[in-house]
Design a protein around this nucleic acid. Structure first.
Lengths: 250, 250
DNA sequence: CGCGCTATTGAAGCAGATCAAACATCGTGG
DNA sequence: CCACGATGTTTGATCTGCTTCAATAGCGCG
């Protein structure tokens, strides 16, 4: 029942030093680069860092010096203001962190590891110089920035228009799709975040998330024991996520 | 009572041809550029366009060819999916549009003029070449992208955590701040969008927006006749926006 | 002057929040 | 090994803020 200890999502044993050999290359910035540009990127993306569960990659207010690329592991990004706290995302392997800090040279969110994470550090000053020399990398970088805007807009749309049931369904199928995009098994996944985190991400309370998960389970769309989630009727779930309103689901 | 017909927010009479002379220069991408870089930008940012109220700058699905810089006027950006429609922003003079379309070469939102607008067109291919040649422009561009991410994150936070009263207060003080940042009179402003638009932006119904505006009016914090809004007790409104929970406001 | 659109106000219903309590799960130390 | 507390999850009961539906009022404009 246990998955193979070495999967694209588990921390790899010895640190991989080259972007060209990184299993996440196609998702991270290095995707679609000419080999020589790749070499340049490797040259500046020297730093590695390992985070244990609960450790912070950075906190709101920290000076922005580097971008971070996730080599493996799962994290959550947080934003707070006067007591309230919102989870803004659950970044995972192959994603880029810190893009929102470029504008004013200071991070405005916390980033916490949900499990053991391997992180690449990309000094922004070095990257800036490199972008000028390697246009394909620059394009890649701009796409990454733009995609981040899209992601936020989609999330915003979700919060504004979808009701709880739909939000959660969308969250689940989105999560599944992200694992699938990484070539990882996606019909059965281990949730790395608490119900509370999910709630804070979707703008719902923990209790509400629980009840909805129970409904999905009773409807036979998923099975869920603890944080082990299995998609049983993915199509039905996806339909709900798309807003196709079916029977009110008792 | 009528404002001077020539203000930074009104469409200027004869088209200004040079970025260096554009009244919005400091807010748009040209801010803080070396004069020679400015000249380059002027060279590629040739196209001008005037939109009348209700006209579309572009629609979801349109191919992405140019970025748009707003020289004057007000617009709204829309996103839809299966019937539902969300207003994602009310861009105004000095802001850049289209950054979300870079990633996949296709716009995924509609942009509609709320009044007469003058728009600069910046061919993206030209800009890309220019960025390589002019590092200061590249930095400026990255800041613009990053700031857009921040804006979306802030909006997301709002939707997730703030209740209706606070959202609307935040919307109003935000609007005021944006006028102030442009050097325009900001204690009395003309809303360019309908109550419905405000609702669709804040994730509320039009009725709810109306009721809240009525409350703010009764509390003596604003006056509002039609779309003419005056801030009377800005501090109180700002306090509410910041989440300082005061008396329940009858 | 009357038509159409936007805005306002009222009454009723409901989705999700809040409060509260039981129940797993898990690491830890006796 | 089990008892233990800490943490996370589940379910129930009640409450409330916002939506929905409906009707009226202003306002601009031909």
């Amino acid at each position: 029942m246990q998955v193979n200890p070495v999967t694209p999502l588990a921390p790899s044993g010895p640190a991989v030093i080259r972007c060209s050999e990184c299993p996440m290359g196609s998702l991270c910035m290095a995707g679609g680069l000419r080999p020589c540009d790749m070499a340049h990127l490797e040259a500046i993306a020297g730093g590695r860092r390992t985070l244990m569960r609960g450790e912070y990659l950075h906190r709101a207010g920290d000076a922005f010096v580097k971008l971070f690329a996730i080599r493996s592991g799962h994290l959550k990004t947080l934003r707070h203001a006067h007591g309230d706290c919102q989870v803004t995302g659950f970044p995972m392997a192959g994603e880029l962190l810190g893009l929102d800090a470029i504008a004013d040279g200071r991070h405005d969110s916390d980033v916490v590891a949900l499990d053991t994470c391997e992180i690449c550090e990309i000094p922004f000053d070095g990257l800036r110089e490199l972008l000028v020399a390697a246009p394909s990398l620059m394009d890649q970088f701009h796409r990454a920035l733009s995609r981040e805007i899209q992601r936020q807009q989609a999330a915003l749309f979700l919060m504004g228009n979808a009701r709880a049931e739909q939000r959660l369904a969308l969250f689940l199928v989105g999560l599944r799709a992200r694992y699938a995009a990484r070539g990882a098994p996606s019909t059965q996944i281990q949730l790395r975040m608490s119900r509370d985190d999910i709630g804070a991400y979707l703008g719902l309370t923990m209790e509400c998330v629980c009840r909805l998960l129970a409904r999905f389970r009773k409807a036979g769309w998923i099975t869920l024991t603890g944080r082990r989630l299995t998609f049983v009727d993915g199509a039905r779930l996806a339909a709900l996520a798309e807003g196709v309103c079916q029977e009110p689901l008792a």
